[in-house]
Design a protein around this nucleic acid. Structure first.
Lengths: 253, 253
DNA sequence: GCAAAAGTGTTTAATTTACACCCATGC
DNA sequence: GCATGGGTGTAAATTAAACACTTTTGC
């Protein structure tokens, strides 16, 4: 509401002020977006990393990311932060909205410690993205002939990530675990239709601990009563008894 | 751990690379910090705003804030984001760590929509700060001859804040309410020693709804058992029966 | 038949919510 | 004494946690 009011009419004096305003009185940092792209594969939470083929940290694994495109042109100041994150996500994975639908993408926090990039002052807005494991086979490394690989969270301790990317991943995992309780992020990591156990597997992978199947089921059944989930047709073959499948309800009652 | 590994030794080739690296191949945005300074006064959640005396939005109310000081000097890239926020907080309120102790200060989110500042591309890292109401009388407007005023949250709807600051405040309130359940931010808004009702008042102000005194007390007593709070000496005079006072335990058992 | 996982039920404790009510003090 | 808010108690409902048990499939 009020946020939009500001784009309304301006008084003529302010208009004249803007005309002759000269930007750039202060030194400016570079601003990037870094992506923590998560999926759950084999009941394991994994992060997509790319191998750097330039200095600094040449050869080390790092989060995909890139510069936010900006300009001081008053008519076109460049892309939004969210748009930059989405663009990088598409560039790095090769998945587009058209081929793979929409992605969950949300800001984590901004990292700007001096010295985190030895080249220059870089402030990085970290985002995390959730990608269904069904899409993982479609992913190809990004355009810059990059080598990309999924790392399970346990592997990260030994990976010696570039920059402060280990810290960014840690902060993301904390946030993802908190979001798991309050929002519906688990549904972003499960196929269109899914079994209760598949959903439990996602919860277990993110929380990093086993959950009681019976108790999880009960909480799940409550979600059905609340209209967040509905039964879907068919059964899923498993190693034993086939399981019922469900679907996330777009319009919770 | 791993985050620190990066500042270790670098190979000589990388060192040479950095020596001849020229920064600034990409256009850069200005980066600022904006502060949502909160207090609870008269059982009401309030935000400190300053009146702009320059274009754009001259005369309108805005969040205090300012540019992050940066440099590409490899030895000194400037100040950290947290440090910038803390510096602005001290500048705008006149309170220093020495006179008023430490403040709660935490990042909210980063706002970078193109056009949010009509002068140039500005990306702003929003922080929120909590200030005990006991310190409020000490606050004097910042150095730039600024007019500052506390606005209760209800008043904000009519205030027509500058830039996208209304959006920033909204996001902050959502975060503060979430933090209220999970961390101990309420203790940051209450005097050194406090009564149960004073603490409840802070919760009510942040959540914007009344809480049952009896039930709140029970939850509170559980915090005592957990060692988060301990009884303090003395009583607080009230309109009726004097109330016991408590103290936040620095070292929860 | 048997292992394995789906699915159901039970029991206990902890927590939430909605109240009723007593008590000490200032005026 | 009496209004006010501090402080206590109770009872129902919901949720969390632990765990035993039954059912249905693949092999």
């Amino acid at each position: 509401m009020t946020a939009k009011a500001k784009s309304g009419k301006r008084d003529p004096e302010e208009e004249r002020f803007l005309e002759k305003y000269k930007a750039g009185a202060y030194a400016r940092p570079s601003v990037t977006v870094d992506l923590v792209i998560l999926t759950v594969l084999d009941n394991d939470l994994k992060v997509l990393l790319v191998q750097r083929n330039e200095h600094p940290f040449k050869g080390r694994w790092a989060l995909p990311g890139g510069f936010v495109r900006v300009s001081d042109d008053r008519k076109d100041q460049g892309e939004d932060l969210d748009a930059a994150a989405r663009r990088e996500l598409e560039e790095e994975t090769g998945l587009s909205k058209e081929t793979a639908g929409d992605f969950f993408l949300e800001q984590v926090r901004t990292f700007g410690r001096p010295g985190r990039d030895p080249r220059m002052r870089v402030i990085s807005v970290a985002y995390y993205a959730l990608v269904r494991s069904t899409l993982v086979p479609l992913i190809r490394a990004g355009g810059d002939a990059l080598v990309a690989r999924w790392f399970s969270v346990a592997e990260l301790a030994d990976a010696a990530l570039a920059f402060d990317h280990a810290e960014i991943v840690d902060a993301t995992l904390v946030k993802a675990r908190a979001d798991l309780d309050r929002s519906s992020i688990a549904f972003e990591l499960v196929p269109e239709t899914f079994t209760i156990q598949e959903l439990r597997g996602v919860h277990e992978a993110i929380r990093g601990e086993a959950l009681d199947p019976g108790n999880f089921r009960k909480k799940f059944l409550r979600m059905i009563e609340d209209g967040h989930i509905e039964a879907a047709r068919g059964k899923r073959a498993t190693a034993s008894k086939p399981a019922s499948v469900y679907r996330f309800a777009r319009s919770p009652v």
